[in-house]
């Protein structure tokens, strides 16, 4: 549940989600669930010319299983906090 909690803290931030089909979408993180399904708002496709069908999509739901990367805002990770949480989770607490 670590990354679920982590992504929940990122809600409202601007992220770029790169999918396994090489489609990269930038938008405001609206919400995330236990499967790491992601909803984005005010989306724009990074390579719009290659994906013209995405022109009028402003809000979207992305299935967690097709995500390759999530590019975070530069100050989006508190490494120490994540480090501690990882240890806590590994200990089973």
């Amino acid at each position: 549940m670590l990354f679920f909690s982590y992504f929940k803290d990122l809600v409202g931030r601007e992220v770029t989600v790169e999918l396994k089909n090489d489609l990269a979408i930038r938008g405001t993180l609206h919400s995330v669930d236990q499967y790491l399904n992601i909803k984005l708002e005010n989306t724009r496709v990074v390579d719009q010319d290659k994906f013209p069908h995405m022109l009028s999509v402003r809000n979207c739901f992305i299935r967690g299983s097709v995500v390759r990367y999530v590019q975070l805002p530069p100050d989006g990770v508190d490494v120490d906090l994540l480090h501690d949480a990882t240890r806590r989770e590994a200990r089973g607490g």
Partner: peptide, 22 residues
């Protein structure tokens, strides 16, 4: 079937669905 879904996007009705040159 859900496993085949990559993305579900809401279409904005007032915006052109495709670029005008198509």
């Amino acid at each position: 079937r859900g496993e085949n879904v990559v993305l579900i996007g809401e279409l904005e009705l007032e915006k052109e669905e495709l670029p005008p040159h198509m």
